[in-house]
Write a protein that binds this DNA or RNA. Sequence first.
RNA 1: GCGCCUGUAGCUCAGCUGGAUAGAGCAUCGGCCUUCUAAGCCGAAUGUCGAAGGUUCGAGUCCUUCCAGGCGCGCCA
Length: 567
Amino acid sequence: MTHETIQAGLAAALSDLGAAEAVIQLERPRDPTHGDVACNVALTLAGVLKRAPRQIAEEIVQRLDLAAMGVDTVEIAGPGFLNFRLSSGAVASVLTDILAADLGFGRSEQGASRSVMVEFVSANPTGPLHLGHARQAALGDAIAALLTWTGWRVHREYYYNDGGLQIERLAESVRARYLEHLGHEAEIPEGGYHGGYVRDIGAALAESFGTRFVEDASPEAMDEIRLFAVQIIRQEQDRDLSDFRVIFDEYYLESGLYTEGKVDATIAALKETGLVYEHDGATWLKTTKFGDQKDRVMIRSNGLPTYFVPDVAYHKHKWERGFHRVINVQGADHHGTVDRVHSGVRALGLPEGFPQYVLHQMVRVERDGVEVKFSKRSGSGMTLRELSEEVGVDVTRYFFQMRRPDAHMLFDIDAALDQSDKNPVFKVQYAHARMCSIFAKADVDPKQIAGVGADLSVLGHDLERELVKQLGDFTETLKRAADNTSPHMLCDYLEQTAAAANAWYHAGNPSRNPELAVLVDDPALRQARLILARAVQIVLRNGLIVLGISAPARLDRPTEPTSVDDA
RNA sequence: GCGCCUGUAGCUCAGCUGGAUAGAGCAUCGGCCUUCUAAGCCGAAUGUCGAAGGUUCGAGUCCUUCCAGGCGCGCCA
């Protein structure tokens, strides 16, 4: 890799200057007139060496062996940047690597096969998945994939609360709809669920059990209704998620923490710490010791634990299962629990920073410039299914992934429905399809395009150099996106790559610049450009795979005719 | 009142961990269609980076204070 040869050359020069410890940062300048690779080491050394940055830069340049570094020229620019311009061969050498690695291009081994758990969605089984869950599903799945591509062994987990007050209210709501369905008067209880799905479950309950629960509202009967309702909702959620291409390795039930004694064990372990005290008839944990705003109740005065205890028990158990890195993807409306869980697990001796949280901000949806606020189905906001059925799974996933998790976001349905390069998902997919269409036109099997042996130095056009450099950044981009748990960094990269590929492709439009087309007569040039097109295809496809988005070889024009004159 | 997140072009948002003249898409304006897919292409214009201080060779980025918006602050989950 050329970055490494430059790094080595600079290190030798710096050691000669008595600054061997200096950190060498190489970057790709945004402005192509600043060369292919830039280094700011002369600037950072100015303070240390007590000399002007430009003077230091000149001393460095005098000690460089450019040919050995694959560099054509080096310039000192601005306040003292070193700008390297690479030889064409050095630039294009990455194409050989891309074609050789193919489906594996972009993978790295940062994770060293360590285990990491990504917990996400984790909706309670009280209703359909909504927009927040959709954002979480898209983000969590992409974060998990990024970790896989950077060498981690990833476990996708879904935690759900199958007991508690919410579920009781669901059961009561279902029974009310059930009674209505059978022609009786009934009302949804205070704090109950009003969505259309509750009516469906009530009807299904009547279908399966007849009039059995009309008179019977005993605890046993309510238990049966609860289990019935939860099962139906769980099935619906699973279907929503698998249609959204999100598959979990494990579903973890909160009730298991009780039945397996983990809640009691956690209470006992917390009492051992000496941070537990009694006050007002309740049992408290001194979470303020770990930075929480106030101490938290562990056991209420009625003797029952608060939700705080199973949360801590659950995370302790994650650690014991061997997941020493855990990433929880949650909506920002849950950020209040973060300090509590951290305090609880720290009290039990687990390290700071466990678990790690990715909190995403809230989502607004607009259609025709008007905010969409209500869904009859859910009884509140739009559901994941409604959104993904309206705009498609690819677009829904991408739109949630392309924004920073901590940005409040607007989901514009009109923009999502657009089928042109204005729509970023389409732009990336189409750039991929364009490369495929070149292979079809040339009648070559892309898999048969070989990267070795070709003369890649003929790819000397600025558009080609920029495109190749862009492709070479893919692996670094995946690492950075994984390190920052930020899929949007990959989206940005793919859009830039698609833009660079489109610019190259359009410049070579045979009606304008036949000499810049891929399919030129000169066999060596044609082969080199086919290799470049193949590399573009591989990078775009691999990027889309990471995001869980399809990479079609062809996007057909819409079949409906253009609108007829209705004047 | 306290805590977390956010504030960058008319709109939606990036800004690679402190670097060069702050970017992209949409919208706007100008020029291009018998295309390796014109569902497009080329070009132009667009900024008090919420405000004020501070840190240093250098700040959209770091620190302090303030302003605005979202969310959260129960012996609910």
